[in-house]
């Protein structure tokens, strides 16, 4: 366990020393969301209708962008091999890495999302739903993404492939989260959607680390 804690600590320090790691996805998030009013229609009534969906699509793409580097450095410098050889639980290891990833991608996105809500005229009633859905939904994105990142870790150009592999798996999260925001905006109950996201998060925590750990091992077997 100590190794996992040490890895998590190290990753936080690395992220702090290299601000691009957490700042770039954040900037990407803001820019993508700014494209929609320019490309479609800046009319406030129209924007308020699509705001939830746009924010969620932007968050999803920003998460994908930051996933690519999740395991690459560890595979290249051999620290992953060390970790495997140490006999530590790979499950905890993967979970720890996903947690760090969420802290530097999903969490900042969740925190700045109200700003985007303002720019896109999100209805006042929908802010809580948006923050809540992002808080519960983005960890699922990090966990599912860690499987894709583990599968493509040893490939030189894995970024696009990672997107191909993972995007279809994100669909349910997107559907329920965007619908929670939309329903809150028109004054309807949205706790059902949040509960579904919570169930998916529980399932993802339970299962994805196994898949990611198996995928990591196959990167080292050659």
């Amino acid at each position: 366990m100590s190794l996992v804690i040490a890895t998590v600590k190290r990753d936080f320090i690395l992220a702090a020393r290299n601000p691009g790691e957490w700042a770039n996805p954040l900037m990407f998030f803001l820019m993508v969301a700014a494209l929609f009013p320019l490309a479609v229609d800046p009319d406030p009534t129209f924007l308020s209708k699509i705001a939830g969906g746009v924010i969620w699509v932007a968050a999803l793409l920003a998460t994908l962008l930051s996933l690519d580097s999740l395991y690459r450095a560890d595979v290249e410098d051999g620290s992953l091999e060390q970790c495997l050889a140490s006999g530590e639980s790979m499950y905890a290891m993967v979970l720890g890495k996903a947690l760090v990833h969420w802290c530097i991608s999903g969490l900042p996105l969740t925190l700045v999302s109200p700003l985007l809500g303002l720019m896109l005229h999100l209805p006042d009633e929908a802010y809580i739903a948006m923050v809540l859905s992002l808080a519960v939904g983005t960890p699922i994105l990090s966990l599912l993404g860690s499987v894709g990142a583990a599968l493509t870790a040893s490939l030189s150009s894995g970024g696009l492939l990672l997107t191909l592999l993972i995007l279809p798996l994100y669909i349910p999260v997107l559907i329920f989260a965007a619908s929670a925001v939309y329903h809150a905006g028109i004054g309807m109950a949205y706790n059902g959607q949040i509960a579904m996201l919570g169930a998916m998060l529980a399932l993802a925590i339970a299962l994805t680390p196994f898949a990611a750990a198996a995928a990591l091992k196959l990167n080292l077997s050659r």
Partner: peptide, 27 residues
């Protein structure tokens, strides 16, 4: 498409089989 893409991307044959299998199981 994802499974087919990863089959082709992996360099080692064994790796491509295993990666595709893991992805298919997650799917």
């Amino acid at each position: 498409f994802g499974v087919m893409a990863i089959q082709q991307a992996m360099e080692s044959e064994d790796g491509s089989y295993k990666a595709a299998a893991i992805l298919a199981l997650v799917g």
